[in-house]
Amino acid sequence: MSARGPADGLPIVFEDVEIRAGEVAILDKVSITIRAGAPTVLIGPNGSGKTTFLRAAMGLIAPSRGRIAWGGCGFQPPARRAILFQRPVMLRRSVAGNIDYALASAGVARAERAQRISELRALVGLAGFADRPARALSGGEQQRVALARVLARDPGILFLDEPTASLDPSATRAIEEVVRATAARGVKIVMATHDLGEARRVSGEIAFMHRGRIVETGAAGAFFANPVTDEARRFIAGDLLE
């Protein structure tokens, strides 16, 4: 797979975005611009709004207030985008069948699919798993199938929601290697995590979220060396934020 130019649909601009569930603001007046380039990593404690942010950026949830624009002024999300959910659902078919389904839904011709399935399985380290039922795999293996499935869509923007949560170190390393290689090909990665180690390893830019707001943003090095806000300082120090 070759390197690509900046993806369509960037920058993604959030302007005073609010997403509410009844009286509760899941996202509270969020404004941020996500540009092409190194991965953007959303960090913050559980319940800070990271998943909702990713779903909104993917175009799966409409804001209650404010607006989201893709590619500067468009209000339709770009076609070549994909999201890896924290708990991906395996379709009731084999590993190859799951990847084939994603390729078919992305419009890849039947004649090309066998070769692509083989490449994607090798990429995520599931070369010998073609005919295994996807639902019978371990959590880490299912996460890799899901990663192959999102990469099958050849996305320009890839959203990752805690892709290594509850995985062991070796599975985490395997996923992170694929993510870094994908970013190196020019795919914009927007990832949510509450794992500070992973955020340091993957990110170029950090957006720190707390209670539905983006509290602080900045380059990863500067953010971890000199956090500006009290909440970010406490989160990096390992304090339990409410």
Binding site: L60, A82, I83, F85, P88, V89, L91, Y101, S105
Partner: peptide
């Protein structure tokens, strides 16, 4: 309910959703 997020994210058309 189980598949909704994945199929929506894959932009699967309604008829293909039903067949799937």
């Amino acid at each position: 309910m189980e598949y909704r997020d994945e199929l929506t994210a894959m932009n699967v058309a309604p008829v293909r959703r039903a067949i799937t």
